[in-house]
């Protein structure tokens, strides 16, 4: 569904990614793990058009989307729940969710039933339902994370990018986030998940990629990565 080949990207003159290749098959959950500064977030930003790649190709459902501006990529069905949540603080929870469906509401993507999808999101994230009229800026960190994920899902995306959905959350909420991801996986949502909790991410994912200094250092089915001694030592800790 999503294919990244030899992606090179960075910020200004600083090159961060030195040729990344990742494949996310339809209906699968793929995770990208690695230490801070390895280039995980930059990879997602380049895929969704927030920064322009300097080389390589990105294909979404077979179409070349390399170098398109982010709104065009979103209109083609790729949703990105960015690092740091980035909800719209002065707008209500409901309005944030409607904005997630902007391409559907304005004719650049099939409309479907946005009202029903809104209700579905409230079912998936009951906390958001209680707070539907509240301004997003007044939500707690965990609630904002739920909102960011729900907002991305409102696109009815073909592919969902999730950047560090557990960042800055209390352990109990981290569990909740992962169980939500597991539920989305059951619904066959195609996902690329970037996580710092490598063990939990590999637990839930089908495939994994390990990033180091802007390159992929290991990849494979996540069960296999979990037992890889090098990955174990570097990212999973001795306990695993």
């Amino acid at each position: 569904m999503l294919q990244v080949e030899n992606l090179v990207a960075g910020y200004g003159k600083v090159q961060v990614l030195h040729g990344i290749s990742i494949a996310v098959p339809q209906g699968k959950l793929v995770t990208l793990i690695g230490s801070n500064g390895a280039g995980k977030t930059t990879t997602l930003r380049a895929v969704s058009g927030m920064i322009e790649p300097s080389a390589g190709t990105i294909r979404l459902g077979g179409d070349n989307i390399t170098g398109l501006p982010s709104h065009r990529i979103t209109q083609r069905g790729l949703a990105h729940s960015p690092e740091g949540r980035r909800v719209f603080p002065t707008q209500s929870v409901t309005d944030n969710l409607l904005l997630g469906a902007f391409p559907r509401l304005t004719g650049s993507r099939p409309k479907g039933d946005t009202g029903a999808d809104l209700e579905k999101m409230f079912e998936l994230f009951p906390r958001l339902k209680e707070r539907r009229e509240q301004l997003a800026g007044t939500l707690s960190g965990g609630e904002q994370q739920m909102l960011a994920m729900a907002r991305a899902l409102m696109l009815n995306p073909d592919v969902l990018l999730l950047d560090e959905p557990s960042m800055g959350l209390a352990p109990k909420l981290v569990e909740e986030v992962f169980s939500t991801i597991a539920r989305l996986k059951e619904r066959k949502t195609t996902m690329l998940l970037v996580e710092q909790f490598a063990a939990a991410a590999l637990e839930v994912a089908d495939f994994g990629y390990v990033m180091e200094n802007g390159r992929i250092s290991a990849s494979g089915p996540s069960a296999q990565l979990r037992n890889d001694p090098a990955v174990k030592a570097a990212y999973l800790g001795a306990a695993h």
């Binding site: 982010s70 990105h80 904005l99 993507r109």
Partner: peptide
Amino acid sequence: DAAGLMGID
């Protein structure tokens, strides 16, 4: 940036 991710030009 986040607005761009919503598909807003």
